[in-house]
Amino acid sequence: MKIINLIKKYWQIFSYLLSGGLTTLINLLVFNYLYTWQHLIGYQLATFIAWLLSVIFAYVTNKLYVFDSHQKTSKDVWKEAGSFFFWRILSLLMDFAILKVGIGIMHKNAFWVKLIDNVIVVIANYLFSKIFIFKSKSSNK
């Protein structure tokens, strides 16, 4: 029973870690396919495409499974989605800055820089979601 109570108590964090892990996996796979493995495009464009696909996935999973947000009107859904993308754009800027330093300036291994970058961004995104985006539902739990 202790384990079940812990899971219930920390369900939001567990579900966010699972959602964030899958979001990170999408981000890393797309980035590495486009930049590291195939050298199809530069790391900035690869980062943007990976970000866009992973943020769409993250919005759906965060809305439905992590923060259990069920907006009643289309206006509220658009407001919530707008807020979600606004905060994710801020984390994208963090993403670009970390990659610029790690890959562009220090010339470190792109995969490892991107992995470390994703850990930082996932933590920031959780805080943004909990505090600013899904606050009304998440504060009731």
Results as ranks from 00 to 15, higher is better:
1 M>E: 12
4 I>P: 02
6 L>Q: 14
7 I>K: 08
8 K>F: 13
11 W>R: 15
11 W>A: 15
13 I>W: 09
18 L>P: 03
20 G>A: 09
20 G>N: 10
21 G>Y: 05
22 L>E: 03
24 T>C: 12
24 T>P: 07
26 I>L: 14
26 I>F: 13
27 N>L: 05
32 N>K: 02
33 Y>V: 14
34 L>S: 01
34 L>K: 00
35 Y>E: 10
36 T>Q: 09
36 T>K: 08
37 W>F: 14
39 H>E: 13
42 G>A: 11
44 Q>T: 12
46 A>L: 00
47 T>L: 11
49 I>R: 05
50 A>M: 02
51 W>V: 02
54 S>P: 03
55 V>T: 15
55 V>H: 04
56 I>Y: 00
58 A>D: 10
58 A>Y: 06
60 V>C: 14
60 V>K: 14
61 T>K: 00
62 N>Y: 04
63 K>F: 03
64 L>R: 14
66 V>K: 06
70 H>E: 11
71 Q>S: 14
73 T>W: 11
73 T>G: 07
75 K>I: 10
78 W>D: 09
78 W>R: 13
78 W>K: 11
78 W>A: 13
78 W>P: 03
79 K>H: 12
81 A>I: 04
81 A>G: 02
84 F>Y: 03
90 L>M: 14
90 L>W: 07
91 S>Y: 00
93 L>F: 10
97 A>M: 06
97 A>H: 01
98 I>V: 13
101 V>R: 05
102 G>Q: 03
103 I>M: 00
104 G>I: 00
105 I>K: 03
106 M>Y: 11
108 K>G: 06
108 K>F: 14
109 N>E: 09
110 A>V: 02
112 W>I: 06
112 W>E: 02
113 V>A: 00
113 V>D: 00
117 D>P: 02
117 D>V: 02
117 D>S: 12
117 D>H: 06
118 N>T: 05
123 I>E: 04
124 A>F: 10
125 N>T: 10
128 F>Y: 09
129 S>C: 10
130 K>L: 09
131 I>M: 11
137 K>Y: 12
137 K>G: 06
140 N>D: 12
140 N>A: 14
141 K>Y: 15
141 K>P: 06
